[in-house]
């Protein structure tokens, strides 16, 4: 089956800066993929290239098996919603009407529901909206378009906690009813972690982690306790980021724990904490050039 997205050796250079370097991956459909990484990691550049809004310096990108650049057939099957989206001097209802003209699967009822939920007045000029309301307008359009490939670039920037929770709920509900390929680029990794089927981590333009989210959950554990006890538990295992404060040591251990490990930790009075996806993405970026991430799948 043709993947929704396929990139091979993708590179983007801006004079002396390399925004993307040798990025290769495939994403199938239906799937919710998290595109994670720090500021300047290349997430937005990658999404813009996928949407045909930016030009790759080298490499190949395919969306639904075809080059997306200037390809109306492919472009009308996708949407890229950005946090800093530029809108024309129109009213909210006009922006919604514009999207309804262009997407065959447009759901007017869902758009109306979301406008109400985000308290977006249809008659208000877009330039009079607050940043959060503009973001909410982008989310409304992105979800109601029901594009086969929906790209969200920092979809929750400027949104309050209630609005973010609403977005995650709506996204999941709509995805369950209409499965499709959705890519979320976000800093708020842990908030979105439960939604994700797949995780891509970019660091300084390089893809440093590409794995199913389920494979990543529980692959790293933070161990805290007496230094000697910690050393006993982690003996022979790969560890990252070990630090000692007084008599207490904390080490991040790579690899899944079994029942015997947990019994031993309990016996040694060690505190075990699962490393979150946010922390894991950070470790992936920091340690990708070493062979320590044997427990997680790397590209």
């Amino acid at each position: 089956m043709t993947p929704a997205i396929s990139a091979a050796g993708l590179e983007r250079r801006y004079r002396d800066h390399r925004a993307l370097a040798d990025v290769t991956f495939e994403v199938g459909t239906p799937c919710i993929t998290g595109l994670l990484g720090r500021n300047g990691a290349g997430k937005s550049t990658l999404l813009r290239i996928l949407a045909g809004q930016e030009f790759a310096t080298a490499g190949r990108v395919r969306v639904f098996g075809a080059e997306p650049l200037e390809n109306d057939t492919v472009l009308r099957r996708m949407i890229l919603v950005r946090d800093n989206q530029t809108y024309p001097d129109l009213r909210v209802r006009h922006a919604v009407a514009a999207a309804s003209l262009l997407y065959p699967n447009w759901d007017a009822d869902l758009a109306g529901t979301l406008l109400d939920a985000y308290e977006l007045p249809p008659a208000r000029p877009i330039k009079k909206l607050s940043r959060g309301m503009r973001t909410a307008l982008g989310l409304t359009i992105g979800l109601a378009a029901r594009a086969e490939l929906t790209l969200f670039d920092e979809p929750c920037a400027g949104l309050d906690g209630v609005a973010r929770a609403l977005f995650y709920d709506q996204l999941l509900a709509d995805y369950a009813a209409h499965p499709r390929c959705i890519v979320l680029s976000t800093h708020l990794i842990d908030e979105a972690a439960e939604l994700l089927d797949r995780v891509l981590v970019l660091d300084r333009g390089r893809l440093v982690l590409d794995a199913p989210a389920d494979d990543l959950r529980g692959t790293m554990t933070s161990v805290t306790g007496q230094a000697g006890s910690v050393e006993r538990l982690i003996a022979g295992r790969t560890t990252l980021n070990r630090c000692t404060l007084g008599t207490q040591t904390t080490a991040v251990m790579v690899g899944r724990l079994d029942d015997r490990d947990r019994e031993l930790a309990d016996h040694l009075r060690l505190r075990l904490e699962r490393v979150t996806l946010q922390q894991l993405a950070g470790y992936a970026a920091e340690y990708h050039d070493r062979t320590v991430l044997t427990a997680v799948r790397t590209p």
């Binding site: 045909g52 009308r76 024309p88």
Partner: peptide
């Protein structure tokens, strides 16, 4: 000025 970026967001090619 402003209508073009939104059109590209909505999947319109530059040529179209």
């Amino acid at each position: 000025a402003r209508a073009l970026p939104f059109a590209l967001t909505l999947g319109v090619s530059r040529r179209t």
